[in-house]
């Protein structure tokens, strides 16, 4: 050890970790940025860099399809499905979260049963769902079998978030409301839901994006009409034009909007709570 005082120069580990983090960020966003740039490819229709004669022609191709698949139709199925999954995930997670606040017999078993579906491979679950539906004489459809398959994926996440949020909720709030004459329903409506609302938005966000982006669990469960991720997959095998990139850019954009709206509303609520009106 040297006797001279140290004024906090950075250790070598800082540079190693900073490099690692930079690589991580490049891997995280690099592909997305590459797709975004190439979606503006010109009439050369080249699938690789460099970008020549930038244009919007492939976005136009997307919405007025000549050679690509039914992108608009797929979007019109994916969006309602994602919204439906979002609402059901919030509803079920929140009510289940309330139930689990009181420890009841078998609570742990039920919790693990709900969470265990996360470890089942999506493709296997897809096959299983289809086989079961066939056996029951029902046809696979995006709003039946695919909805169920998506819920099996989104619900465990929603439950985990809601358990964490409600677990942190001080029971004194509910007792104080009860002390002030609130009925059970008033306690939920006037106190608990407003307090955990940011958590509910987080659950909604997970419900939406997990369904909107889901491929393996959609694969055999959507029936004859594709959702967006399946449509993209089909296009990778059939379509060899930058329209593929344009589609990637548009779907990513939709996801970003949803995340931005969710985060903005959480921040707004928190700000209101700590800075007043």
């Amino acid at each position: 050890m040297s006797a001279s005082p140290s004024y906090g120069s950075r250790p070598w580990t800082f540079y190693v970790l900073a490099t690692l983090f930079t690589l991580f960020v490049i891997f995280l966003y690099g592909p997305m940025i590459a797709v975004l740039i190439l979606s503006f490819q010109g009439p050369s229709a080249s699938l690789v860099f460099p970008l020549r004669d930038p244009s919007f022609m492939w976005f136009d191709e997307l919405f007025n399809p000549r050679r690509t698949g039914d992108v608009v139709g797929a979007f019109n199925r994916s969006l309602p499905l994602a919204i439906l999954v979002m609402f059901l995930t919030v509803l079920i997670s929140v009510t289940a979260g309330f139930a689990f606040r009181r420890r009841f017999k078998g609570a742990t078993a039920i919790f693990y049963t709900a969470i265990a579906s996360l470890i089942v491979p999506g493709l296997v679950l897809s096959i299983g769902t289809l086989v079961t539906f066939r056996y029951l004489g029902m046809s696979a459809n995006w709003y039946t079998s695919a909805l169920g398959a998506h819920l099996s994926w989104a619900l465990p996440f929603g439950l985990l978030i809601m358990f964490a949020v409600l677990g942190r909720l001080n029971p004194s709030y509910e007792e104080a409301a009860f002390d002030l004459g609130a009925t059970k329903w008033q306690i939920v409506k006037e106190v608990v839901v407003p307090i955990v609302f940011p958590g509910m938005i987080a659950v909604a966000l997970f419900g939406f994006t997990l369904s909107y982006d889901e491929f393996p669990r959609s694969w055999l469960t959507v029936g004859t009409k594709n959702t967006l991720p399946l449509e993209i997959w089909t296009m990778t095998t059939n379509v060899t034009s930058p329209a593929l990139y344009a589609l990637g850019a548009v779907t990513t954009f939709v996801s970003f909007i949803v995340i931005a709206v969710a985060l903005a509303s959480i921040i707004l609520i928190q700000r209101k709570r700590f800075r007043g009106k």
Binding site: N170, S172, Y173, E175, P194, I195
Partner: peptide, 10 residues
């Protein structure tokens, strides 16, 4: 209450 339990959203 010991924690006062003031409703944070009001």
């Amino acid at each position: 209450f010991q924690s006062y339990a003031l409703f944070p959203h009001l």
